[in-house]
Design a protein around this nucleic acid. Sequence first.
DNA 1: TATGCTATTGCAAAAATTTGCAACAAATCT
DNA 2: AGATTTGTTGCAAATTTTTGCAATAGCATA
Lengths: 142, 142
Amino acid sequence: MNNKIPDLTHIRELGFRVTPQRRFILNALAKQDGHTTATDIYQIAQKEMPTLNQATIYRVLDFFCGLNLVTRSDIGGRVVYEFAPDTPHHHLICRHCEQVTVLDDAHFEDLAAHLLAEHGFKADFNHLAIYGVCAHCWDKSM
Amino acid sequence: MNNKIPDLTHIRELGFRVTPQRRFILNALAKQDGHTTATDIYQIAQKEMPTLNQATIYRVLDFFCGLNLVTRSDIGGRVVYEFAPDTPHHHLICRHCEQVTVLDDAHFEDLAAHLLAEHGFKADFNHLAIYGVCAHCWDKSM
DNA sequence: TATGCTATTGCAAAAATTTGCAACAAATCT
DNA sequence: AGATTTGTTGCAAATTTTTGCAATAGCATA
Ligand SMILES: [Mn+2]
Ligand SMILES: [Mn+2]
Ligand SMILES: [Zn+2]
Ligand SMILES: [Zn+2]
C-alpha cells in the first residue's frame, strides 16, 4: 500500500494547471499498489467522479508520464500505468510463464553512466519491461 | 534497405502453419527499412492483397513477436513493428526533441550476463526504447 | 473580488485494437 | 488424389484509444 500523497502544486510552476481531474487520477494511481490500466481508472471514476471523461483519463495519464510522475509500460500485452515511486524499479517478464518480477533500478546505473559518458545521453530508465526466460522455465526446456 | 527474405518454413516444425497472409506480412516488414505501424501494413495490403483483414494483421504481428521474428515497441506514442535483424538494436529517445537514435545491443551484454548470473534470468533485450534527454537538449536547458 | 488569458475538459466522432465464432485451408496420412 | 485434423482467417461487433472543437475553469493580475 502506498500512502504517499502526490505533490501536484509544483506543476503549477511549470505553467500547467492543477485540476480536480488530475488530482483524482493521480490519487487513484497512488492508492493502487500495482500496475493499473486506463480502464481500471475509468471504473473507479465511475463511482467516485462519474463526470470524469475517458478521453480526459488518457490525456491526463499521458500528461503525468511526460512529467515522469507516472510510468507507462506494455506488460503482457496490456498497457499499464503506475505512480512513479521514489525508487525506480523495472520488471523481468518470462516469455513462457508470463511471470513478472521486480528488478531494482541499481542494475542500470553502470549502463546509465556509460550512455552519459559515451553518447551524452541522460537516460532515465523508468520502469523498463525486460523480456526473456526465467530460471524455472529455462530448466524445464533443457 | 533490407533484402533478406525471411525463412518461414521453420515455423512449420513448431506446429504452426505457413499461410499467404503470414508470408505477405513478414515480407512487407522486411521491405520497409524502419519502424512500421499496423496501419502502414494495412495500407500496403489494400493494394497488394486487398482481402487481407485488419484483425489478421494484428494477430499475425503478435504471432511473429512471440517468435521473436518481429519486434514491437512503443516509440513516441506510436506502436511500431520491425523485422528483427540478425544484430539486435535499441533506441535512445529524447523526451524533449523526440529524436530517435540507434543503440547497439552490445551495450547490454554486461547487464545480460549479470541478470543471468544473479537472477537466473535469460534476458533478450530486444529493441528497447530508452527515454531520456539527448546531449543537445541537455545543453540548451542549462 | 472581478477580469482576462488560455490551458484543460467534455463531448461526439474517428481511429485503432481486440474478441468470438463459423468457414476455410495448410499439413498429414491414407 | 481424397479424407481428416485442427490451426487460421474473415467478418462483425465490442473495446480501447485518439482527435477536433466549443465550452469551461485555473490562476495571474489588477
Ligand atoms: Mn512496476
Ligand atoms: Mn528499431
Ligand atoms: Zn518462466
Ligand atoms: Zn533532444
